[in-house]
């Protein structure tokens, strides 16, 4: 690894052995035992699950799947995250102890994927909900691609500096947050579908007005908080 590429290393780490070694030790221990949460909402989990088995064996990297978020270090958001799943995903993420990492697996969790154009229920990218460390594209990504993402995450962890983590940890952290989704009422008006499918000249100005109004009424930050 070229040191010039990472100016952070020159800034914070001192030359003494004593101050750098615990940092390296904790980085090494974290990167070599990344326990993922058993979390899967769609087809990506099939690919993820084949990593547990003998062909792609992620135990080689020290990954042990945990079913309790309290013992997990890593969450691979395997599969489409819907608006209904979003609160529980955020809650699961918040239940994981620091330091924690997120790999957004698959196109659905990066941008919404094939649901990004016309779906009414998909979260367009999981990074609107939780901070993502590594984006792993694919629909679904191959297990080899997951291993590639894991390697990238391991590289990222190996470059980490403890002070940065503790700073981010000290931010406001709540036990439980009530994630209330904004409920739209005007979905069954009947004019809704006509706007999108064909635009008849008689209802054009009214429908486009309502369309933009309804689109602007659900900003993305309201889904999060």
């Amino acid at each position: 690894m070229n040191l010039i590429e990472f100016p952070l290393l020159d800034q914070t780490s001192s030359n003494s052995v004593i101050s750098t070694t615990p940092n390296d030790l904790s980085n090494w221990s974290r990167l070599s035992s990344l326990w993922p949460l058993l979390y899967g909402t769609s087809c990506c989990f099939i690919e993820f699950a084949s990593l547990i088995g003998s062909r792609f064996d992620f135990d080689r990297y020290g990954l042990v799947p945990r079913s309790s978020p309290r013992q997990a270090d890593l969450i691979l958001t395997a599969g489409t995250v819907t608006m209904k799943m979003a609160p529980s995903l955020v809650r699961l993420y918040e239940q994981m102890p620091e330091p924690k990492y997120v790999i957004a697996m698959g196109a659905c969790t990066i941008t919404g994927g094939m649901f990004s154009t016309d779906s009414y229920s998909t979260v367009r990218g999981v990074d609107k909900l939780i901070p993502v460390d590594v984006y792993l594209p694919g629909c679904p990504p191959k297990p080899e691609a997951v291993i590639d993402a894991l390697t990238k995450l391991r590289k990222k962890i190996s470059r980490e500096i403890v002070e940065d983590r503790t700073l981010s940890q000290n931010k406001n952290r709540c036990f439980t947050t009530s994630h209330k989704l904004y409920v739209r009422r005007s979905t069954h008006t009947g004019t809704y579908e006509q706007e999108l499918l064909y635009q008849s000249p008689s209802t054009l100005d009214i429908s486009s007005e309502t369309f933009f109004k309804s689109k602007s009424s659900v900003p993305s930050y309201k889904l999060v908080n």
């Binding site: 030790l25 904790s26 221990s29 974290r30 070599s32 035992s33 102890p97």
Partner: peptide, 10 residues
């Protein structure tokens, strides 16, 4: 590695 990581975890 597992033990050290668990020691440093929140």
């Amino acid at each position: 590695a597992d033990g050290t990581k668990l020691l440093f975890k929140e």
